[in-house]
Amino acid sequence: MLKTEAPSPLYAELDLLPLPALVAALVGDQFGAVEAVRAAAPAIAAAVAAALPRIAAGGRLIYVGAGTSGRLGVLDGVELYPTFSWPRERALGVLAGGRQAMFEAVEGAEDDRAEGAAQLRACAAGPNDVVVLLAASGTTPFVLGALDAARALACLAIGIANNPGAPLVRDADIGITLDTGPEVISGSTRLKAGTAQKIALNTFSSALMVRLNKVYGNLMVDLKPTNAKLLRRAVALTMHATGADEASARGALEQCHFHVKVAIVALSRQVTIDQAQRLLAGAAGSVRAALAS
Rank of each mutant, 00 (worst) to 15 (best):
L10S: 15
A12Y: 08
E13Q: 13
L22C: 09
Q30P: 02
Q30T: 12
E35L: 13
L52C: 03
R54N: 01
A57R: 00
G59V: 02
G59K: 01
L61R: 04
G65H: 10
A66K: 10
A66C: 08
G67S: 04
G70M: 08
V74M: 02
V74Y: 05
L75E: 01
V78A: 03
L80V: 12
S85M: 10
W86N: 08
P87A: 01
L92R: 12
A96T: 00
A101V: 02
M102E: 06
E107D: 13
D112A: 10
A114L: 14
G116R: 02
G116Y: 02
A118V: 15
A118Q: 05
L120G: 05
R121A: 14
A125G: 03
P127Q: 04
D129E: 02
V132Y: 07
G138Y: 06
P141Y: 06
A149H: 01
L168V: 03
D171L: 03
I174A: 02
I176P: 00
P182W: 09
I185K: 05
R190Y: 05
L191I: 08
Q197T: 13
I199H: 04
S205K: 08
S206Y: 11
M209D: 00
Y216K: 09
G217C: 09
N218G: 13
N218S: 14
M220A: 11
R232T: 06
A234M: 01
A234S: 06
V235F: 12
H240F: 10
A241L: 14
D245N: 04
V260R: 02
K261C: 13
A263K: 15
V265F: 06
V265T: 05
S268G: 10
R269I: 10
V271W: 10
Q275E: 15
R278A: 14
L280I: 13
L291P: 07
